[in-house]
Amino acid sequence: MNMDTPSLLSIQDLEVRFRTEDGEVTPVRGVTLSVSPGETVALVGESGSGKSVTSLATMGLLPRPAGRVSGGKILFRQRSGQTVDLATLPLPDLRRLRGAEIAMVFQEPMTSLNPVLTVGEQIAESVRLHMGLGHASALKRAAEMLDLVEIPNARRRVHEYPHQMSGGMRQRVMIALAMSCNPSLLIADEPTTALDVTIQAQILVLIQRLQREIGMGVLFITHNLGVVAEIADRVTVMYAGQVVETGSVGELFRTPRHPYTSALLNCLPARARRGEDGRRVVQSIPGSIGKVGNGCAFAPRCGQATDSCQAGSVLLETEMDRSVRCLRWREILA
């Protein structure tokens, strides 16, 4: 990754460690990725691949004191033009950025809102905090935000409690909450997983529309490749805490280089229908996140693995705007 790219967010060689009862584990091992303004980067991987931990580390929300960033940088370009390292930024400064310049939408719309505060009060809280508005104008802003995320009767709904709304409606509120201070980076951690398919599509369209309007960068965390195809400009695939492949969404879907990426793509129903070799599943269960063995982490599950894959650590090969972490990708592709 080029050090002087004008990216909004540039995560370099991020390593996160967690202390557990069985010793230290390293769920994120040397993750590098970047998000430019106006760009949507999808971070893809199965459960336990470290994608959520990467996003939490970016927000400075790793559970303390167990988790910590043990290496690498999380560079973020502030609105002022200054670049800061979120991994080492003091908490008060980080708090000023959270919600104002970096916002996050969570997976669980049913529980991510405080049940005893009206949705308007919750949006107003963030607005007052970061934009310094008074109570009345903050509530007005809240109503505008609800209107922006296409909640009907926004003026009335501002005074409703979360339990009076459906899941899709609450996720819209979460998005309104995240967008309320015009952040330049939005981290969406599986924002549509808990919603049914039609609502999913609406939420995706909404995020895309707002992104165009505000021009923010989006880091979209998901395990749903269908969603990736629909929303992302670039894709970063993670496996066992490492980036295994990066590329633009078109290229990566057309010619996956890493065997794990191809295996994931082969799971897509559309491809299987079209497919030459039918729908496949990725064999066996993912490796333990903490285990830092020698060789390629995916080797035990890889159909193409040879002895050389297990021998030494595999580096991320970068070529133009694509990178892949596989010794034999040229052979396999050929």
Partner: peptide, 10 residues
């Protein structure tokens, strides 16, 4: 929602 609040800078 507590984590969400923290993510908003509260």
């Amino acid at each position: 929602f507590v984590e969400a609040a923290r993510a908003l800078g509260v």
